[in-house]
């Protein structure tokens, strides 16, 4: 049997080379209801869905440089759904006038043995958290409104503690690189949410300092 050809060059087409366009914001729990109400009106006419996810962030520390980070996520509300393994690249510096944060993104659906596999590979879990909230869709845009909770006992998702009294709101689109019209659409959508929430381009690397 002929062995499949090994790809050495990065794949430049297909679903691999996708970019995530992201806008973030946060809303106080008091204003959550009105935001959800507004989103229900603006987004596609679908049944509003709630979710509860458990995310584990894995690090692979090499000899030098930054550690390699992978995020493994599973749905607590849908236990049979596959795990989701995600790699997020550094935000692109590029165009300052662009309205959204753009970063490389690789999405892989994985089986339930993903944590074991990552451990075997040498990844170590850095931290974990539980998010729960609502998910909306408008065309290709995904709006996630969720609260983030700290896992008190590692591995026990029952025992959690809210991080803050506000919800995280993320507006994201997955698109091939260079589709700046996407960020236009996102901006206009964010404009419509303006009085309730200000969705902005937040660079996580700058947040740390």
């Amino acid at each position: 049997m002929e062995a499949p050809p090994v790809t050495v060059m990065p794949i430049t087409s297909g679903t691999i080379n996708m970019m995530e366009y992201l806008l973030q914001g946060s809303v106080l729990d008091l204003a959550l209801e009105s935001l959800l109400h507004r989103l229900r009106g603006l987004c596609d006419n679908m049944e509003p869905e709630t979710f509860t996810d458990h995310e584990l962030v894995y690090l692979l520390k090499g000899q030098q440089g930054n550690p390699f980070i992978l995020r493994a996520r599973r749905s607590l509300s849908h236990p049979t759904a596959p795990w989701h393994l995600r790699y997020l690249g550094q935000p692109e510096v590029g165009d300052k006038s662009r309205h959204a944060l753009v970063r490389n993104c690789v999405d892989v659906a994985a089986s339930h043995s993903l944590p074991d596999f990552l451990n075997e590979m040498g990844f170590r879990m850095d931290h974990e958290f539980v998010t729960s909230g609502h998910i909306f869709r408008k065309g290709a845009m995904k709006v996630v409104v969720c609260s983030v909770s700290r896992v008190l006992v590692p591995g026990n998702t029952e025992n959690t503690e809210r991080m803050s009294l506000s919800h995280l709101v993320e507006l994201s689109v997955l698109a091939p690189a260079g589709q700046d019209t996407m960020s236009e659409d996102m901006r206009s959508f964010a404009e419509q949410l303006k009085p309730l929430i200000h969705l902005e381009k937040i660079d996580p690397s700058k947040q740390r300092h």
């Binding site: 849908h78 759904a81 999405d107 998910i135 869709r137």
Partner: peptide, 23 residues
């Protein structure tokens, strides 16, 4: 056929196709 992804971070798409890899 358009269903919300679970977990929420997963991309939109057919659920069955997302099962193809893990299964």
């Amino acid at each position: 056929s358009v269903v919300m992804p679970h977990p929420a971070s997963a991309p939109f798409g057919h659920k069955r196709l997302r099962l193809a890899g893990p299964m």
